[in-house]
Simulated scan of single mutants.
Amino acid sequence: MKVLITGSAGFIGFHLVKQLVKQGDEVIGIDNLNDYYDRKLKYDRLAILGINKSNINYGVELNSDKFVNFKFIKLDLTDKENLKKLFKKYKFDAVCNLAAQAGVRYSLINPDAYLESNITGFLNVLECCRHEKVGHLVYASSSSVYGLNKKMPFSVSDNVDHPVSLYAASKKSNELMAHTYSHLFNLPTSGLRFFTVYGPWGRPDMALFLFTKAILEGKEINIFNNGIMKRDFTYVDDIVGGILRVLANPPKGNPRWDELNPDPASSKAPYRIFNIGRGNSVNLLNFISEIERNIGIKAKKVYLPMQDGDVSETWADISELKTEFDYEPKITYKEGIKKFVNWYKIYYSLNKEPAGKSSLSRAILNQ
């Protein structure tokens, strides 16, 4: 397939691009390379994909020097005119929209960023997919949409009308916008509600990254809701495996969809919503204990009340993904933490070496 990956310098996007190019697809990646977190991590991910930081300029198409079937362009989703030109040039078979302003807590202090990227940017993607008749749009939603729901595990058939952060509301909006385009223009769309993705090359604002960094530096870690927290931690390779299965199978309308008893996860239109997680919930304190075990240092814990916009537990019902695509997560949180800590130690030790002595091509960094 000819595939567009938005957010290709991001955590999940980077891992997805690697798998798509390895399986022979033609991949175009775009990313605005914003400064929400350290750009160096984004540039180093791109270096693994064969894109040299020194060659990156806005709107300039770059060929990978490692993969003949990968190109990268620095581009913002709010740049509608250049986005339209890109879609018209490549006539994509499929689009995977992973570009977004992420972070629940950040949405409390910078709400405008979420409307620009997650609403306006996503509308531009939908419009381009519509006009260029893209065969399938897969897009990132989030477990955050479940909001005040307490019924566990979270099911895609549950009501999600009570978000507790603007980030969650923007992701719920994406699902509604996608359904509208599926209904009006017969555009096949699949929304994936990601559950706490982690692993090598992860985002520095996520818990595993924050905890590992602080413990290694002898600093305190903040544990919210006094440690009474559970998360469905999902290793990035399992996430990517699920995306690949969904991407290759555009949805069709559900002939059994009932207007009198409407299923929120499907439609008469070519529209689907899936949870994509590991399918179990891990106590946060157990997760932290495993980090401590791998690092060999006890964390200095500070217990705090629940933060606004956060929830105490997430747990994904992944039965639909299992039934339809044989999705079966393989990596336990203990295995995943070990892989991440090993990567973190090596990556940051290399970046402390004198200039010219470190090499991102070392085998362990290519995982």
Results as ranks from 00 to 15, higher is better:
Pro329Phe: 12
Asp308Cys: 04
Tyr347Leu: 12
Phe72Cys: 05
Lys352Trp: 02
Phe67Ser: 01
Glu116Cys: 06
Lys322Cys: 03
Gly29Leu: 04
Pro305Ser: 12
Ala299Tyr: 10
Val236Pro: 05
Thr212Asp: 09
His183Pro: 02
Val60Trp: 00
Lys252His: 04
Asn351Phe: 00
Thr314Glu: 12
Gly296Thr: 09
Asn149Glu: 08
Ser141Pro: 00
Glu335Phe: 11
Tyr181Gly: 05
Val164Pro: 05
Gly242Ala: 11
Leu360Val: 08
Glu127Leu: 05
Asp263Gly: 01
Glu292Val: 14
Asn275His: 13
Glu292Asn: 13
Met1Ala: 14
Gly103His: 11
Asn159Asp: 12
Tyr303Asn: 07
Asn226His: 15
Tyr198Met: 05
Leu321Asp: 08
Pro153Tyr: 15
Tyr347Cys: 10
Ile56His: 09
Lys53Val: 03
Asp237Phe: 00
Asn34Phe: 02
Pro111His: 06
Leu285Phe: 06
Ile215Ser: 06
Leu98Gly: 03
Gly241Cys: 00
Lys133Cys: 08
Leu284Thr: 09
Leu166Glu: 09
Cys129Tyr: 03
Ala47Glu: 08
Gly7Asp: 06
Ala316Ile: 05
Ile346Met: 08
Tyr43Arg: 10
Tyr333Gly: 00
Val246Gly: 04
Lys88Ala: 08
Gly242Trp: 00
Ser312Ile: 10
Asp238Glu: 11
Asn225Glu: 10
Leu208Asp: 13
Ile291Pro: 10
His131Ile: 15
Asn286Ile: 13
Pro354Leu: 12
Gly13Lys: 10
Lys300Cys: 01
Tyr114Cys: 06
Ile119Asn: 11
Lys268Ser: 07
Ile221Ala: 03
Asn63Glu: 11
Lys268Met: 08
Tyr327Arg: 08
Leu108Pro: 00
Lys2Met: 07
Lys66Phe: 15
Lys89Trp: 01
Leu321Gln: 06
Ile221Gly: 02
